[in-house]
Design a binder for these strands. Structure first.
Lengths: 231, 231
DNA sequence: CAGTGGTCTAGACCACGAA
DNA sequence: TCGTGGTCTAGACCACTGG
């Protein structure tokens, strides 16, 4: 009864010994040849288990030296990017979008479509968005009606990107943004800046300002994400 | 001259066709047998390339049906956890930590070590921290002098964990925290809550409150992290 | 030098699930 | 049913690098 593949069994064996502390950072693991003997399998099977753990960041492998438990100095986590419509639907609220301003602006990198809008939950604004879209990279954007379609959603569904960067911070609401969100100036807000590229060419850059308390970013790092068993 | 392994060449070939939009989400890829013929290699080599892309989330593979480009509906990013000392050192500032309060509190989950402290940059506080450590899970914590050693750093180096959860939000500074940080009540702050477990047992739970503008979380998702070529 | 991991092969059997 | 991916084998050669 081998419902679980052997390479996965080897992998979880070793991972558990690391996470439990039995194998401390820097400790050396048996070589592939030794593990072959231990588990009575071919080298490729052992290699798959160890390579997976290496890719997950738990192991470091060096030729001639061997396989070692990685230092866990800098940790990282996987964090989901907010998808407003889907997230609000989960809590029985209605998502909406309202365009505030739309203009074309000529910049050093060519013409940029500038969109300013509000994200609404049950009709009440909870986030302000300031977005620039590179018209040269996304010519179709000029034809889309963004008055009620959130540009983020449209871009996500239509425009592939190869790189993205996110910055998360906090700020006090300022001027127009405070007014649009219906709060006093200086009210605490969460900011999310997101920029995407495709092949070195910038596609879009957006700054979203959330009313404090209306949105939270959650990230998990667990035994199930340390490596990737399956989708 | 095969400096780049064949399986990696296949992988980047396909990845680029996806990220450039040539292969749209839902599109079907050739079967492994067909790719074997195309690249003139063994099946394991093709399989490694495709499996890697599947684990990276770019592909979905189903028996009998074939291999398809995954929908990119919900995006995710990899984000580093702040390591204050290292980060400040990069910008030529001096990191410091100051303990405010330390007490043992008996709770429903056993006794918890409660630590309250400030993180300092060049002697000025920029973050407040409120931490609980499960004494049952980390008995050594009782013997550590946390007056100048930040407990997060100590825990990270000494206590392995298997799961972690992070929540990022914004809030206005309240009462004591505002006073400690030297700002007015209601001043915008970034909050980071982090909880770690080992085998279902909670190890530590911390809430950090950053002065707005003093800290930013940055996450990247790029061609280099979409799959994992190497460490 | 020699042990280690990195890669690759040419097969094989099986589980799954769409046709 | 039968094409597909998932897994595994028992070899092989090579690149690297520590002892």
């Amino acid at each position: 009864m081998n419902a679980v593949p052997l390479h996965e069994r080897i992998r979880t064996d070793i991972r558990e010994r690391i996470l439990s502390g039995a194998l401390a950072p820097g400790a050396r693991l048996p070589s592939e040849a030794e593990l072959m003997a231990q588990y009575g399998c071919a080298r490729m099977t052992v290699n798959k288990a160890l390579s997976t753990l290496r890719d997950g960041g738990l192991l470091v492998r060096r030729r001639r030296a061997g396989t070692f438990v990685a230092d866990r100095g800098t940790e990282s986590m996987v964090m989901d990017i907010p998808d407003f419509a889907a997230d609000l639907a989960l809590s029985d609220r209605v998502y909406g979008y309202r365009l505030i301003a739309r203009k074309i602006r000529e910049g050093p990198d060519g013409s940029m479509l500038h969109l300013e809008g509000l994200h609404l939950s049950d009709g009440r604004p909870f986030a302000h968005e300031d977005r620039h879209i590179n018209v040269a990279a996304v010519p179709e954007a000029g034809d889309v009606d963004f008055t009620e379609t959130p540009p983020g959603t449209w871009l996500l569904r239509h425009i592939p990107w190869s790189e993205a960067e996110h910055r998360i911070g906090a700020t006090g609401a300022i001027g127009d943004v405070a007014a649009y969100l219906g709060v006093a100036e200086g009210a605490a807000c969460l900011t999310l800046e997101r920029q995407t590229w495709r092949g070195g060419e910038s596609i879009t850059k957006v700054r979203q300002t959330f009313l404090a308390g209306t949105y939270e970013l959650v990230g998990r790092f667990g035994a199930d994400t340390a490596d990737r068993p399956n989708a």
